[in-house]
Nucleic acid binder design. Structure first.
Length: 505
RNA sequence: GGCCCAUUCGACUAGCGGUUAGGUCGUAAGUUUCUCACACUUAAAACAGCGGUUCGAUUCCGCUAUGGGCUACCA
């Protein structure tokens, strides 16, 4: 059986969108699952849309995601170079080959002329198609004498090379996800293969490179489905065996309809890109999943399940598990709406599964960066461990645990009203004494002493604990009170009780 | 406009001729609890419509509707 070789072939025209990341992911999973190779090819044939830094961004993003390549300009490989602008010299000969075989022709129509034909057709409620129905009336090597064509070229007249779509053919193709797809050749345009600027178009470069790089499976977004017939016919014209195709459904915006775009992220408040991005021309910025606090594992997990499912009820997967479970025939056919809430939930699940040291370390770092608080790793681990089940992100740990780092400066009104009674101040003074007298200040001892004292004095557990919580936290929330007391330490607890009594009376 | 693709709870989806149409997120209620959460239990919530085929259609086939993609010398 033929070796599995797949490629991810982005265009460096901007930051890599999450739809692109998913396409890369599926390619990667497919390659690994089948013991094949994953190739990164940069498709930069459109010089006008080149954006500096975009290629670097793509490489860094995929690296952050854990998507690795077996071949690229960065890691090497025997089919390079892997950037189309560096393969420029290759394409001309293939274009010439089609010209010689009579599968392509030279066209001199200017963009303005073509635009005019389209407008005219539209005005007559018709569609202008550059193919068998019109090519014989246009300015090209089919309608001109050989001498005329040669003269125009010699004079430096700009021209393009167009593929000659066969007449009256029904092209029946197989898509790994969609099954059979039928297209009538007469509805297709004679697409430009070679531009007047000397660069190939996507269609030519893509087919040539896929062939030269021995790509076995083309896994790409659904936006390419309409081009599949063209591509199949190109392989046929060259006499090459076509790879297998799989067209992935699109990622849709969460509300309404349509393809997910950068604007949706801005509007709805979630990232559309894996990493933070600054546009080099406009200075415009876009948020990234990494900077928003997502773990790459959660991000990838979410993306994998958007348009694919394992057929079991398992939802949490690491990359190895995804690789093991992945198959193209479990990809869905219809577009998937992106859902922010579920994405957060994935991050929560991953946060819960992360080793406590890692989460603690991340929180320690966050405290340093955001609050300028220095704390030791053990304490950060303990704090994070106590509250992580109620947050989705490391950065959210703070609002559940700020009281471990700073004494309350105010007291939540609703809680005060509900929990602070007439005799609370006195009870707190008594509790303070009890706490002061605890010799061995550990969790078990603290709990036992307090519970015993409450019971012996016939006081309500809720009443005492909630008032105490108010003193220590400033609000009616937080983990087990014994934990808080132990971690704050005797002195701090006594201090907080004292100032709490002073504040609430 | 033309061509192509799609259509199950609000969202992601399971289902591949006979099911009380299942799960997850979200929502709501309850249990637990010193609080807030977590956890657990439960609830509401879907086969776009119409025709076929069939003993029987969510499932197969048409048509319609809706949505999406493409329609560049962009990818």
């Amino acid at each position: 059986m033929q070796e599995v070789r797949v490629r991810f072939a982005p265009s460096p025209t901007g930051p890599l969108h999450i739809g692109g990341v998913r396409t890369a992911l599926y390619n990667y999973l497919f390659a690994r699952k089948n013991g094949g190779k994953m190739i990164l090819r940069i498709e930069d044939t459109d010089q006008t849309r080149f954006v500096p830094g975009a290629e670097q961004y793509i490489v860094e993003s995929l690296d952050w995601c854990g998507i690795k390549f077996d071949e690229s300009d960065y890691v090497g490989g025997s089919f390079g170079p892997y950037k189309q602008s560096n393969r420029k010299h290759l394409y001309k000969q293939y274009s010439d080959e089609l010209l010689e075989k009579g599968h392509a022709y030279i066209a001199f129509d200017t963009p303005e002329e073509l635009e005019k034909y389209r407008k005219e057709a539209e005005a007559n409620k018709q569609t202008f198609i550059y193919n068998c129905q019109s090519r014989n009336n246009l300015r090209n090597s089919l309608t001109m004498s050989k001498q005329e064509v040669e003269m125009l070229i010699a004079n430096g007249t700009p021209y393009t090379v167009r593929f000659m779509i066969p007449e009256n053919r029904e092209i029946v193709m197989h898509d790994l996800i969609r099954g059979e797809v039928h297209v009538q050749s007469n509805t297709l345009d004679d697409k430009v293969l070679f531009k007047s600027d000397g660069m190939p178009t996507y269609h030519l470069a893509n087919i040539v490179d896929d062939h030269l790089m021995k790509i076995s499976h083309v896994i790409r977004g659904e936006e390419w489905l309409p081009s599949m017939a063209l591509h199949v016919m190109l392989y046929e014209a060259f006499g090459w065996e076509a790879p297998q195709f799989a067209h992935l459904p699109l990622l849709l915006k969460p509300d309404g309809n349509g393809k997910l775009s950068k604007r949706d992220g801005d509007r709805l408040g979630f990232p559309v890109f894996p990493l933070f991005w600054t546009d080099p021309k406009t200075g415009e910025t876009a948020s990234g999943y990494k900077q928003s606090g997502y773990y790459p594992e959660a991000f990838i997990n979410m993306l994998a399940l958007l348009g694919w499912n394992p057929g079991t009820e398992q939802e949490i997967f690491n990359m190895e598990e995804l690789t093991e479970a992945f198959s193209l025939d479990r990809c869905s056919k219809s577009g998937a709406k992106f859902n922010v809430e579920k994405t957060k939930w994935f991050n929560h699940e991953w946060l819960m599964r992360k080793p406590e040291v890692e989460v603690g370390h991340d929180y320690q770092q966050w405290l340093k960066d955001e609050k300028n608080i220095d704390t030791n790793l053990d304490f950060a681990i303990k704090v994070a461990g106590l509250v992580k089940d109620r947050v989705n992100f490391v950065k959210e740990i703070w609002e559940q645990s700020f009281f471990f780092f700073e004494a309350p400066t105010s007291y939540d009104e609703v809680t005060v009203k509900k929990r602070w009674k007439e005799n609370s101040a006195q009870t707190m003074r008594d509790v303070a004494e009890v706490i002061r007298n605890i010799e061995d200040f550990n969790l078990a001892n603290i709990d036992a002493t307090l519970n015993n004292w409450i019971e012996v004095n016939g006081l309500g557990m809720g009443l005492v604990m909630n008032s105490l919580r108010l003193m220590l936290v400033g609000a009616g929330k937080g983990p087990h009170i014994g934990e808080i007391i132990e971690m704050l330490g005797k002195e701090e607890v006594l201090r907080r009780i004292e100032s709490g009594i002073k504040a609430l009376g």
